[in-house]
Write a protein that binds this DNA or RNA. Structure first.
Lengths: 102, 102
DNA sequence: CTATATTTGACATATACTGTCAAGTAATAT
DNA sequence: ATATTACTTGACAGTATATGTCAAATATAG
């Protein structure tokens, strides 16, 4: 079970790339990339897609990891975390079948 | 399938209470309560607890609805929503069994 | 020690959140 | 029609959080 940051760092090192190189490609400060890899900052979706490109990672899979990280972090401290997910799933199904809001 | 706002409004009306009365009890502007009931604003947890009190709703259940609303709203537009929830669940289990972060 | 890679923190800016208020609408009663 | 009541809306200010830039500090390797 890895975080997005761990996935990114591991793959970057496997490819033998430096923070400097990857951050230049993605067009962000390397300080930010360093923080993203240590889960201190969250990438935007645009940055995430570019990272997937240069690191040859599956974009959809990375996005899933990213969003699930965010959700896990949000509710891990709630006792009711797993019930929350179940209810959220029902709500999403409902919202998708009834696109009209409110 | 109801949103937190719908739950709150419905119960308030069932009890025959006015926005003015409930908002006074909770100590917020009635404009905010109006917006909360229409899901235009999100209550803080403190407000949510006080609302549960005066409206005689189950606090835990209301919290679950609240958090799941937030999550559902966050990811409803993602195609991969249901996979995200599955991954999030695994991550949460992992995090709970391994309290040391990173 | 030197050079290179990474990390850290201060800072500025931008974006989003929160509450206050007054004016607006809608429905009903007089 | 006007007045009253309940609710809604939008502008605003203050605060908090997010985001990017930069330079200095700390590893890590040669």
């Amino acid at each position: 079970m890895e975080t997005v940051g761990q996935i990114l760092r591991k793959k970057r090192q496997t490819l033998g790339l430096l923070l400097r190189q990857v951050s230049a490609y993605v067009d962000i400060d390397q300080a930010i990339l360093s923080k993203i890899e240590r889960n201190e900052r969250k990438p935007t979706k645009e940055i995430l897609n570019k990272l997937a490109e240069i690191l040859k990672l599956d974009k959809d899979e990375l996005l899933i990891q990213f969003i699930s990280d965010k959700i896990a972090y949000e509710i891990v401290d709630e006792e009711c975390a797993s019930k929350v997910l179940k209810v959220a799933e029902k709500k999403i199904k409902y919202l998708k079948s009834n696109p009209i809001k409110n």
